[in-house]
Simulated scan of single mutants.
Amino acid sequence: MDENPHNNTADQTVEILNDEQFEDMRDLLEEDFADLIQVYLTDSQQRIHSLRIAQQQNDNTNGFEIAHALKGASANLGTTQLMRLSSQLQERCREQRISEQAALIEDIAAALQRAEQTIKQRMEQ
């Protein structure tokens, strides 16, 4: 993984999950929270798949909309690393540069895996 120029030391220290935001949402939704988590994870996987297609098709408009939706869902749940990376992709799409963003999209996919792992650990507590 060290060969990936997007994986620098600063990225390693970024918060994966904002505990306060996560717990606030859990308290708010109570018994519906587990369903929200499942929908979020499923939808996020689909969005990443769609981002890969948008990147291959150089579709900046669709890429922007998908990144925006992923950023918003991630903000609601407190998955800060995903939110930050999605925001970066949104900016690249605004600059009409999605075709160059395959590595960033893979960073988003990896961040989702880390978030899912962290969320599952938190749900067991």
Rank of each mutant, 00 (worst) to 15 (best):
E20Y: 05
D19W: 04
T42F: 07
Q12A: 15
Q12C: 11
L112V: 03
A34C: 09
V39T: 12
P5Q: 08
E31T: 14
Q81P: 01
Q113N: 13
I119D: 06
P5V: 10
R114I: 00
A109V: 06
M83Y: 04
K120T: 13
Q12T: 09
N8P: 07
A75L: 12
E95L: 10
D11Y: 09
E95A: 09
N18E: 12
N18M: 04
D59R: 00
L29H: 05
A10E: 15
N76R: 03
A109C: 08
T79Q: 01
E124W: 01
S87E: 14
G78F: 01
L29M: 14
V14Y: 06
A110Q: 09
S74A: 12
N62L: 13
T9W: 04
Q117E: 15
D19V: 13
N4R: 15
A102Y: 02
Q46T: 12
L51D: 01
R52I: 02
I108N: 05
I108F: 08
D27Y: 11
R84H: 10
I98R: 00
R94F: 02
D11Q: 11
T118R: 10
D11C: 05
K120W: 07
I108K: 04
H6W: 12
S44A: 15
I105S: 00
I53H: 07
D35T: 11
F64C: 04
Q121A: 12
N8R: 07
D43L: 05
T61S: 15
A110I: 00
Q55E: 09
K120N: 15
I37T: 03
D11G: 11
Q55I: 01
Q57V: 04
V14K: 12
H49V: 13
E106F: 01
R92T: 02
A34M: 10
M1F: 08
R94S: 05
M25S: 03
Q121H: 07
I16A: 04
S44F: 09
R84Y: 04
Q56F: 02
F33Q: 06
V14P: 00
F22K: 01
G63W: 00
M1S: 14
N7G: 02
S87D: 15
L112N: 02
Q125K: 13
Y40N: 05
Q21G: 03
M25H: 01
E30N: 12
N58P: 00
I66H: 01
Q46G: 13
I119C: 08
D2V: 15
Q90T: 03
E20L: 10
M25K: 04
R92K: 13
T80C: 09
T80F: 04
V14R: 10
R92E: 02
Q38R: 14
R47I: 00
I98P: 00
I108G: 05
S87R: 15
Q57N: 15
L89F: 13
A110P: 01
D32M: 09
R52G: 03
S50H: 11
E95D: 10
R84C: 03
V39E: 11
